[in-house]
Design a protein around this nucleic acid. Structure first.
Lengths: 218, 218
DNA sequence: TAGATTGTTAATCGATTAACAATC
DNA sequence: TAGATTGTTAATCGATTAACAATC
């Protein structure tokens, strides 16, 4: 167990969830240890890269043996922060919002979904993922009482900037943004993860057009 | 107008949709020309990088003037292949599938959605995005007749590999995969764009935990 | 012409890969 | 001990940035 050496680059950070996922799958399939070489083959990386990546955070392996999958999975989970139980709210209960609420397994990823909001009166009151959709007008009161820190935006592009702005006022410090708008919040301490599905679709278009396979990134 | 010089790297390919999107927005807002400097500020890139990127494909700019937005948008669209009209089918008409079908504006991105399939008899017959959900049993006949080339997978992780395999047999050469499974098809000529929303959520978790803002990628 | 801004080369920076000594 | 495989340094590779001549 050595002290961390390399700086943690954005590339490494982007790869962490992937490591976590593969290790979780291995764990589920009952494998107990793995070498960087074997993990590299599965993940389509190089063994060198894996050892470099993991060494940003400390020596999790053992010479001559490899990595203990259970331990490594747990350590990476800690680095990502899946044990922090972030309280999240969902804004926008359309099809996408419902899909996200229903299928994302928030508990397994460090989040608890505590509220769902929509400004469409027709959707208010509906049951989604075990929660009753509330009206957006009640957001302020809800935040004052429950203090969620993460907001998931499944709203139209046009509403995104303004909604985000007011959510920051209500104490939100992290956004998972599906609105097709390049969200950028200047307040210090506020982080944003933009998901641009349209860009992903265009990347597929490029790949299909040129018959070139670009490597995964997310 | 010069001959292309730089090799087109994966980084550049991943940025193309972003360029296309920003240029489209500028176009919509009525701006006619832009300099690399100004575009860089908007997109949070450097002017150098933009000029390098665009020069992979040829000289679209004019010294002393900048870039004609209309022309540049059209050229990048052509490079991406948005004019190729790829025929796509959607597999899985759950909430996510419905959201994708309804909100992705396929026409604007070079695709036509021609069929929606689900193996759940309850969903068959429903109207989604102007199409009637068909039973998966009819996929084979449909493909024989309509020859779609792209499949959008909104199905569970466990089904992904097998479904993809049989779709390749039916002539599918491109996948947009939302199944949380790392799809990888070995057949030559088949391209895959995996969308791992779970990884994106974990990246948000990391950012929130460490209060570090990783740059956009998609 | 003078001013602006590109296209393009060269320099820098960072990330990946290779190699190997350390060590289990 | 011998074999395996890590941790870590050095070498390579690639991508970004800086600089500037070309030119509109």
């Amino acid at each position: 167990m050595s002290v961390k050496k390399n700086t943690v680059s954005f590339s490494v950070i982007r790869r962490l969830p992937r490591y976590y996922r593969f290790l979780g799958d291995l764990l589920a399939s009952g494998v107990g240890r793995i070498s960087s070489k074997e993990l590299a083959e599965r993940m389509h990386l190089t063994a060198s890269q894996i050892r470099q990546d993991l060494n940003c955070f400390g020596g999790f392996g053992q010479q001559g043996y490899g990595y203990n999958i259970h331990q490594l999975h747990r350590e990476i989970g800690k680095i990502i922060g899946v044990d922090h139980d972030l309280q999240a709210i969902l804004i926008g209960a359309g099809n996408l919002g419902q899909a996200i609420a229903t299928h994302m397994h928030f508990e397994k990823r460090g989040f608890t979904l505590t509220g769902i909001f929509d400004c469409d009166a027709q959707k208010v009151g509906r049951q989604v993922a075990g929660l009753q959709v509330q009206h957006s007008d009640d957001l302020s009161a809800f935040c004052a009482q429950r203090h969620p820190t993460i907001a998931i935006l499944c709203i139209p592009k046009t509403a995104a900037a303004q909604v985000a702005e007011s959510l920051v006022e209500l104490g939100i410090t992290g956004f998972w943004n599906f609105s097709h708008y390049d969200l950028r919040v200047d307040h210090k301490n506020v982080v944003v993860e933009n998901v641009h599905l349209g860009d992903s679709l265009l990347t597929l278009c490029y790949q299909a057009t040129h018959n070139i396979h670009t490597p995964d990134f997310l």
